[in-house]
């Protein structure tokens, strides 16, 4: 705790997404919107391609922080804004690049606000992505 400072990068991870990942998430979450697995439907509604579920991006992006903090139970608050869709190519898939940085510390509560930067295809896809966690060892 004493060594943690605002601006520190606590975790970085690259998460490859494939169409299989989307189908798996659809089943696990119950979100069967076809824009997440059917190219024809995605095209019909004017999308650039099949998109990852926003909630899959949100769910995957927090995992490096979960691991750093010592488990899912240590997350107190988690918010994101969905600013750009993640297009998942049928062959190439897509790649999420996650960087988790300390945004603020609350020594009294023993918590840290971790700010996530999440990019895909060179662009940021989540805005104001913030996780409040109990810091490891607190």
């Amino acid at each position: 705790m004493t060594e943690l400072a605002v601006g520190d990068v606590v975790a970085e991870r690259t998460i490859p997404l494939t169409r299989d990942s989307l189908v798996r998430y659809a089943g696990a979450s119950g979100d069967f919107n076809p824009i997440h697995y059917r190219d024809d439907v995605a095209e019909q509604v004017g999308l650039p391609g099949v998109l990852a579920h926003g909630m899959l991006t949100m769910g995957a992006a927090v995992q490096p922080v979960v691991d750093w903090a010592g488990g899912a139970s240590r997350v107190r608050d988690y918010q994101v804004r969905f600013t750009r869709p993640v297009v998942v190519d049928p062959v190439e898939g897509a790649t999420l690049e996650v960087t988790a940085k300390v945004g603020a510390l609350d020594t009294e509560a023993g918590t840290a606000r971790i700010d996530l930067t999440v990019r895909a295809a060179g662009a940021t896809v989540l805005g104001k992505a913030q996780v409040v966690v109990l810091v490891p060892g607190a």
Partner: peptide, 14 residues
């Protein structure tokens, strides 16, 4: 556990 795998969790608690 199914949900955890779907969001790429490696968390033993989950």
């Amino acid at each position: 556990r199914e949900f955890a795998r779907a969001v790429f969790s490696a968390d033993p608690l989950s």
